[in-house]
Amino acid sequence: MVAFILRRLAQSILVMLVVGLVAFFMFQFLGDPVNQMVGVDTPIAEREALRERLGLNDPLIIRFGKFVVNAAQLEFGLSYQHKSPVTDLLLERLPATIELSMVSAVIAFALALPAGVYTGLYRNRWSSKAMLTLSLVGISVPTFLIGILFIYLFAVVLGWLPSFGRGDVVTLPGGWTTGLLTTSGLKAIILPALTLGLFTLTLIMRLIRAEMLEVLRTDYIKFARARGLTNRAVNFGHALKNTLVPVITVTGLLLGNLIAFAIITESVFQWPGMGRLFLQSIQEVDLPVMSAYLVMISFLFVVLNLVVDILYYVVDPRLRVEGHGGGH
């Protein structure tokens, strides 16, 4: 187990280095950042000074080395656009994105689990069929459209919920801002969280349903019933647990997606998170912000994958290598 985790850690570091390389080379090919930062009439000497200050004149390999070392210390340089450290910019917006993603993840999983189990167990009921049809909407309609529909219905027509922003935020010790402690903040997060979570919700629900159908057909479920175990024990103890391995895999990746691809939801709802910062930085060719975002998101996926792999071990005893006793 420890050896396995160490091995995965080594792989993760390799993955991060490759991502760092990609992020770094963005600097080289996406135009001259100096042109973006200064006016047309800036003298050449001043441009050169700025170039020197930003470290753009060093050889490539040294710059990459610096980039990696700095990145490891969460140091991504100055934003071209905002003229302030990228890390500060990202950290400032991190709570908004994390809160949005977590709330939508909780909503998605809390609804997907019972819905998936229900539609798997009672697949012939009309309610199951209705849920499945509805879930197709969640899968096929693009996020921005759902967001706009929500805004139209709940903000414009009904006027129940705000259509943009985060509402009032409270700053917690440690600098984390949260909107979850104020009424307006809670109201503001409902629509974006639903919009963002809908795809995840429907996908996980359908996955759990498909897995349940598969597992319910297996011999060990038949045998569990033949032993007279209660429905609850069979359905939840035996069947649901066996659906977990594939569900964990997909869930881990979807969790990453929720954070990484909050971009669209954030721009629809004017949510002051990292996604919007990223979109702005693309428009302004703000390379340090772009590469920092790239590195951060990849780091997130790498961590999630590691957690997923460790969870496999917790759930499935067949993966635990120690104590092979078979073959008599």
């Binding site: 011999d219 060990y220 019933r225 033949a226 007279g228 175990l229 429905n231 035996h238 066996n242």
Partner: peptide, 21 residues
């Protein structure tokens, strides 16, 4: 359900798949 296991037991064909892994 209360009769199954209690009064009538069952054994199936494939022992490899009869037990929950």
């Amino acid at each position: 359900r209360k009769i199954r296991g209690r009064e009538i037991g069952a054994i199936f064909q494939d022992p490899l798949t009869s037990l929950n892994p």
